Simulated scan of single mutants.
Amino acid sequence: MTAGGRAGGEPPARGRRRDQAIALGWLVTIWVLLWGDLSWGNLLGGLVLGAAVLLFFPLPPVSFGGRLRPGPLFVLVVTFVAELVSASVHVAAIAVRPGYRPRGAIVAVGLRIRTDLNLALTAEVISLVPGSLILEVDRDAGVLYVHVLDVRRPEDLTAAGDRIRAVERRLVRAIGSPAEVRQLDPKPDTGGESP
């Protein structure tokens, strides 16, 4: 990190404008997806609404210090789609099974990378998969509280936590900084034991 808190010596004002442009792009994309129709009217409406949101409800700056890695990003997208289909089939099977009452549970999962961006992205990906829902995010401790559906035994709770940490690992490998990737799998201490 250099002056202004940005990688590469980028001036803070220029970096802030870039971050706002990226946020505006995402807001327009979400607006068009919500309407389900790519038209000039929806693009213009998304631009106006997105600009108003950024102007009247400014968010604290969240800078992106990572880099996009196409291979891990492809793995993230493919595994997300596979989990989405699998979970949808599972929830549909539960819904049509006569007389079956699924048991839910709340799992607390501590994330290894505690940046706001990682917490938000991991929470979003988890919430998009049917059968899991983020109930709370403890920002200071880096813990997600997740409601999971159809828990039958204690091993299901462990599996849910492992699945959430796997999502975090795939996200960080796809878009995280080199330092964050190193934090995922710290090297074991090879030094000798102290007496």
Rank of each mutant, 00 (worst) to 15 (best):
V137N: 06
P58H: 06
R101D: 08
G25Y: 01
D156H: 14
R67F: 04
A108G: 12
A108M: 09
Q183Y: 03
L76Y: 05
L121R: 00
A7V: 03
E155G: 12
R112F: 07
D116A: 11
K187N: 04
A13W: 10
G71W: 13
V107C: 07
R139L: 08
R182K: 13
R101L: 12
G15T: 01
G131E: 03
L49V: 14
L54S: 05
R16E: 15
H90L: 14
F80C: 08
R169T: 09
R16P: 05
I164L: 03
V172W: 00
A92E: 00
P154C: 08
R163C: 02
S88Q: 07
V75I: 13
S86A: 15
W35S: 13
A105D: 03
A141L: 05
R97H: 09
L47K: 01
G46K: 10
L44I: 03
R139E: 08
P188N: 02
L44D: 00
I134S: 14
L47W: 02
G142E: 02
E136H: 15
T122Y: 04
L68Y: 11
D156L: 12
D140A: 14
G71H: 08
Y145P: 11
T158F: 13
L54V: 06
V85P: 00
G41C: 10
W40F: 12
P102W: 00
P102F: 01
I22Q: 09
V89E: 11
F56I: 01
L117K: 04
S86H: 13
E136Q: 15
L73R: 03
P70S: 11
E124W: 13
P195L: 12
A87G: 03
G4V: 00
L84F: 14
G104M: 05
A7H: 06
L84E: 11
D37F: 02
E10G: 01
I22C: 10
G99A: 11
G142T: 09
V167D: 01
G9C: 01
S39E: 11
D116C: 07
R17Y: 13
G104W: 05
R152N: 04
T122S: 08
E180L: 07
S194K: 11
S177T: 12
I22S: 09
I113G: 10
L119M: 10
G142R: 07
V125R: 00
A123D: 00
G25L: 04
I30F: 13
L47E: 00
G65H: 12
V151I: 15
L54M: 06
V85Q: 07
R67M: 04
F80G: 08
V85A: 11
D156V: 09
R163P: 00
G45C: 04
I126M: 01
A87E: 01
A13S: 09
T122M: 03
E193R: 11
V78T: 12
L73D: 03
R139K: 15
V137P: 01
R103I: 07
R103T: 10
L121K: 01
L49F: 10
G25Q: 00
V143K: 15
G8A: 02
G50H: 01
D156R: 14
Y100K: 11
R114C: 01
Q20R: 15
G192Y: 10
G46P: 10
